[in-house]
Structure formats: structure tokens, C-alpha cells
């Protein structure tokens, strides 16, 4: 009788455990193993050496790439947080009817009906040297010559990231904000809080879990990207993953694996840092 419920709970965790082991655990194990291999002439030598790691840590390029990726992550995080928080705030506290809320929320997801690549590439004719934006500025007499920094620059990379990832910030913040009981706001007003104190004492702290979840999404997405950086910077900027992808296309799997392991470690540190600041468990349970 006692074994039965035990078996039942094992069966209940089995599907997700199986998926995690097959598609996450095993591949990670392979990558860890390969990161200690030797390589040359397109071949792998199953050894156990630390050369790949030593090389990464002794190269000045590594630091530069990480700083570049972190810079993008930080800027994009700040911009998406600002925009995402405001959109969520507007949807939750200014849109009065549920129908409008759902409608506007769906409107936010419209760009996601096309692929990431198309959405990103569509910025190119807009921001380009003779693009729509520059032509409009010149036509309006605001500028006399095209602005060069708009495309194939860090600016373009950030614009594309923000466009791609803001929704990942909106959704979790919207979620936690929508759960704030309106009577809490009235209670704060009753106690003498003005709009700013209501925001800082009630709304912001109660949106923290959503902010944390959104931040995790955006930061991991930016840290793991190479395609946007490559396309939108016109090859002028690079990220950690672009180095990694270069190594893969050169069939240098062991250094790529070592690079991947370091990236995983660093992103894990960043995420656990966020989790240490904010307890997101209650958001996931509730």
C-alpha cells in the first residue's frame, strides 16, 4: 500500500525528468567531456587536458568579448525593463476593461507572428544610409546628410535586441502586477501615500518577482546571442557566442565546448545573483 503512492509520484516526475536528462543532462555531459579533448586537423583526440581552458583565460580576446556581451546585456536589460515596466503598468492600471487589456496585450505579441530573423532584418532598410529614417530626417530638413551610426553599429544591435526581447519583460511584469489587489493601493492612499509613494512602497516591491523573471529572460537571451550582433553590427561587434560559433565552423569543437562551459557558468552566476535578490518561487507556485 505504501509503495503505490511512491510509484505514482515517480511516474509523475518521470516525463519531465526524462526530457531533462535526454535533452539537457546528456548534452551537457558531452560538452563537458569534449571541452577537455585535444584537437587538430579536423579531428578530436579523446584526452584529458586543460589546454582549452588555459587558452581562453590567457587570451585578451576573451575578456573583450565578455565585456562586449555584458555591455549589450546591461543596456538592453535597462531599456527593456524601462519599456516593459511601463507597458505592463499601463495595461494593468490604466486600461479599465478586461477586454481592452486582452486586446492590447495581444497587440504586443503581433510582431511575434513573424520570425525573429525577418523582424530583425526589417530594421536594415529602415535604419540604412538611404533608409526610411534618414530620408525622413533629411526630407524634414533636420539633417543635411545621412546619420551613419544608425545601422551596422552598436546602436542598431541594441535597437534589434530591444525590439526582439521587450515582450519577455512585459509578460512576467504584467503577470505580477495584475495580481496586486487594488484595495492595497487604496489602503496606501488611505494611509496618506501620494502617487509616488504608492508606486515605490506598493507597486514596485510587489512587481519584483516579475521584474526578476523578465530580467532572467532578457539577460540570458542577450548573453546567448550571436546572430543579432553579427547582422546588425555588420560584423563590427562580436559576442561571446560569435567567437564560439566561429570555432564551431572551423571544426574546433573542444575550445568551443570550453567556451560554452564558461559562458554557462557565468550566466548561471548572473541568474543566481538575481534569484538571491528576489524570491521568485512564490510567483511560480501561486
Amino acid at each position: 500500500m505504501k509503495a503505490l503512492p511512491r510509484l505514482a509520484s515517480w511516474l509523475q516526475v518521470a516525463p519531465v525528468a526524462l526530457i531533462l536528462v535526454l535533452f539537457f543532462g546528456l548534452p551537457m555531459l558531452v560538452v563537458v567531456t569534449v571541452s577537455f579533448f585535444d584537437y587538430g586537423q579536423g579531428r578530436l583526440y579523446p584526452t584529458f587536458i586543460f589546454d582549452n581552458y588555459v587558452e581562453i583565460f590567457s587570451s585578451s580576446v576573451t575578456l573583450r568579448l565578455y565585456l562586449s556581451s555584458l555591455k549589450f546585456a546591461l543596456i538592453v536589460w535597462a531599456v527593456t525593463l524601462l519599456i516593459g515596466f511601463n507597458i505592463a503598468y499601463f495595461l494593468v492600471f490604466h486600461v479599465r476593461t478586461l477586454l481592452w487589456q486582452i486586446g492590447l496585450f495581444l497587440l504586443c505579441t503581433v510582431p511575434f507572428w513573424t520570425s525573429n530573423i525577418i523582424r530583425m532584418i526589417s530594421w536594415i532598410p529602415f535604419l540604412g544610409r538611404n533608409g526610411i529614417f534618414n530620408q525622413t530626417l533629411e526630407g524634414a530638413g533636420i539633417t543635411s546628410q545621412p546619420l551613419e551610426f544608425l545601422l551596422f553599429s552598436d546602436f542598431a544591435v541594441i535597437v534589434a535586441y530591444v525590439h526582439l526581447f521587450t515582450l519577455f519583460m512585459v509578460v512576467p511584469i504584467f503577470n505580477s502586477m495584475a495580481r496586486i489587489d487594488r484595495s492595497l493601493i487604496e489602503a496606501a492612499y488611505d494611509a496618506g501615500a501620494g502617487p509616488w509613494r504608492i508606486f515605490s512602497e506598493i507597486i514596485l516591491p510587489l512587481s519584483k518577482t516579475g521584474i526578476a523573471l523578465g530580467s532572467i529572460f532578457v539577460i540570458t537571451l542577450v548573453m546567448g546571442d550571436f546572430f543579432v550582433v553579427k547582422t546588425m553590427s555588420g560584423g563590427q561587434s562580436a559576442s561571446v557566442v560569435s567567437a564560439l560559433s566561429n570555432e564551431i565552423s572551423a571544426i574546433q569543437y573542444p575550445p568551443a565546448a570550453a567556451n560554452a562551459m564558461i559562458l554557462v557558468a557565468i550566466v548561471t552566476l548572473m541568474v543566481s545573483g538575481i534569484l538571491r535578490l528576489v524570491d521568485i518561487r512564490k510567483e511560480l507556485i501561486a
Partner: peptide, 16 residues
């Protein structure tokens, strides 16, 4: 409410 010198106890208590 503060200027009025009133205070309210809410139905669901509205504790933070």
C-alpha cells in the same frame, strides 16, 4: 483621507 482625519478598514483587510 489624511486631511479628513478618517481611516478605513477594508473588507479583505488589504494588508501589504
Amino acid at each position: 483621507p489624511v486631511q479628513r482625519g478618517t481611516a478605513m478598514m477594508f473588507q479583505s483587510y488589504a494588508l501589504f
